[in-house]
């Protein structure tokens, strides 16, 4: 019984490692959006330092949502989703594993990259550490929302899914940015705790609604 979940984990990891598009896609997207900001706002150091936390957060938000849009698509197209639905295995666990694998391969690299790009955008080092922490707590939320958007629009991947999901991600973005901005003060813990609370609050609700969204394609 365990082997089913473990195999899902193994298989998805292999697919990620073997395909440059799914591994590099979010990274390229992230880097190019980061580059767009200085090109649009100018290279003024003070201005960029003020904006940098927001720039990185927004870029990661978009990259993350996009990379999770197609998480269930392949299983849907080749019919394995039907089999999983009919197998009687815990769909909750199955979806959690899939989202976790996707997060490991598309969000974790972005978090490390964000530390590098924070220097390019003149973010102070202490703030960059807080940034990494907030991303560590925030990206799983974005991943689950992205997966939900993907599950809602399995049949035709369109813009509707992500536009529904972005407003719902706002608390994560706001709490993350507030934590970074107050990195010198004691309030920083307040926002980080709240972000963590939002993450754990979202896990069961979002994964369950992902499954609800997947089922609507099979009714």
């Amino acid at each position: 019984m365990k082997s089913f979940y473990f195999k899902t984990f193994q298989r998805d990891s292999k697919v990620y490692l073997s395909r440059s598009s799914s591994f590099l896609g979010p990274i390229v997207f992230f880097l190019i959006t980061i580059t767009l900001y200085p090109l649009a706002f100018g290279s003024d150091e003070e201005k960029l330092a003020e904006l940098s936390a927001g720039i990185i957060w927004i870029s990661i938000l978009l990259a993350n949502l996009l990379s999770h849009q197609f998480i269930f698509n392949e299983d849907y197209k080749d019919g394995s989703l039907d089999l999983v639905l009919a197998s009687g295995k815990s769909l909750f666990l199955w979806a959690s594993i899939k989202i976790f694998v996707n997060w490991c391969f598309s969000s974790l690299p972005l978090i490390f990259l964000s530390l590098l790009t924070s220097f390019m955008l003149y973010l102070p080092f202490d703030a960059a550490l807080i940034l990494a922490l907030t991303l560590f707590l925030g990206t799983p939320i974005l991943s689950m929302f992205g997966a939900l958007a993907g599950a809602l629009t399995l049949e035709r991947g369109n813009i509707v899914g992500s536009s529904i999901v972005i407003p719902m991600c706002l608390p994560a973005l706001i709490l993350g940015i507030l934590a970074i901005q107050s990195y010198k003060n004691e309030e920083v813990l307040f926002y980080i705790f709240l972000l963590a609370a939002f993450l754990f609050f979202s896990i069961p609700i979002l994964i369950a609604s992902c499954l609800g969204a997947i089922r609507l394609h099979f009714e």
Partner: peptide, 10 residues
């Protein structure tokens, strides 16, 4: 489990 963790953080 996750709701109680969330509550702890709050």
């Amino acid at each position: 489990a996750s709701l109680s963790v969330a509550f702890t953080f709050i």
